[in-house]
Design a protein around this nucleic acid. Structure first.
Lengths: 211, 211
DNA sequence: CACGCTACCAACCATTTGGTCTGTTTTTTA
DNA sequence: TAAAAAACAGACCAAATGGTTGGTAGCGTG
């Protein structure tokens, strides 16, 4: 049964360095030969494992990009503690990782979305799906927060989610070339300011009583 | 003296359709021939007027992109009225334009920045300069607001500016493929919510008395 | 009207691109 | 251990790319 073991190993190697190069130089600006050169592999190997460059990239999205986004932005906010604190810490961690990343080219998802927008519907389908999951996760986190009494009952969960996604996408772009650490700090301060404005008013205590 | 009139006319034609195509398909994914075909011009014409594709694009930035950003995001917030209202209206208008644009590929600046980030320092210099001007304009607008008593004295002008830029860049990406109108509406609602949290407390009336 | 200069044409070039194809090595299976 | 299948090598191809070059309409000026 494990005859596919070597196959999977080389496929993963290809996908890993493929993603790195696509992230660094962009999809259209990275040739298949570029990836192969870095791996000391031949064209034959590549087209033995993948149908085309596009097929290759879609598999990268499904295998690697999805997981990165999950571990970075989805799972950290799925807990049942104070929602706003979870999101704050999640963003803080994600941005801190970016600061310490020597070679940062911005938010993976944002870069690819911008590259394929209106150009490759097939790939956009996959990228939009990831965005959708992120949005759903945020919305339900906010709603949990409202239910738990941490967030004001009147806030629009969808609105907050869109606003959070927007600001995150944007700050990742702004952090690439100019003062990433300072910008991260300023961003987080304002995020906390914003969160204060949607918190449940202090007189309404969290209704932990309902448990 | 006006013997250069025809020259400038064709150069502008080239730049206009060039920008449209670069915006639509991306810089690296648009060939010089693509632009020439749309104009029914030849290679000779192009390289008679411009040194290279890169030189061509830099001139486009200086001639067209800068002006678009100015009229869209800079000038509308340079007035002396209530700053937060100015910014709100400015964003509202900019996003509304995007909603009604049949073929919207996102925020021009964001698309190009993502494409050239860490790849073409020469072009990034120009794009970062535009961002810098936008930031400076926002910061001084916030400071005017603090001075005029519309904005709380304790807010960090730099922080607000970065936060505003982030969210704007991000929402433009999110508005491209999915429910632009709804997302714009939600975004604007949350922006107003955020602005309320940095407004001067109502007990401190705007110090129009100082005039 | 001839001269010269601007603005443009179009064939051409070297290189790179995604992809194919034939063959060789390596591994599994009988 | 031999045959069969899997994994890979690398030469090859057509199309596309940014850029070059020699030539030529058209037009203002002497």
């Amino acid at each position: 049964m494990e005859k596919t073991l070597k196959r999977m190993a080389t496929m993963q190697r290809m996908q890993t360095t493929g993603l790195n190069l696509f992230y660094k130089k962009g999809y259209y600006n990275t040739s298949v030969d570029d990836i192969l050169k870095e791996l000391s592999l031949s064209k034959g190997a590549f087209y033995y494992h993948f149908d085309s460059k596009e097929d290759f990239f879609i598999q990268i999205i499904e295998q690697l990009v999805v997981r990165k986004v999950y571990s970075m932005l989805i799972e950290p906010i799925e807990g049942h503690e104070n929602t706003l604190e979870l999101i704050t810490n999640c963003f803080e961690d994600a941005l801190e990782t970016a600061v310490h990343n020597e070679l940062d080219y911005g938010f993976l998802l944002n870069n690819f979305i911008n590259e394929f927008n209106g150009r490759n519907p097939e790939i956009m389908k996959h990228l939009n799906e990831i965005l959708r999951i992120w949005e759903v996760t945020l919305v339900s986190a906010i709603q949990r927060g409202k239910f738990n009494g941490h967030i004001d009952r009147h806030v629009d969960a969808e609105g907050v989610a869109v606003y959070l996604m927007s600001s995150f996408i944007g700050i990742r772009t702004l952090m690439v070339e100019t003062a990433p650490s300072a910008r991260k700090y300023r961003f987080m301060s304002q995020l906390r300011q914003y969160f204060k404005s949607i918190e449940a008013k202090s007189e309404n205590q969290p209704n932990n009583t309902s448990y």
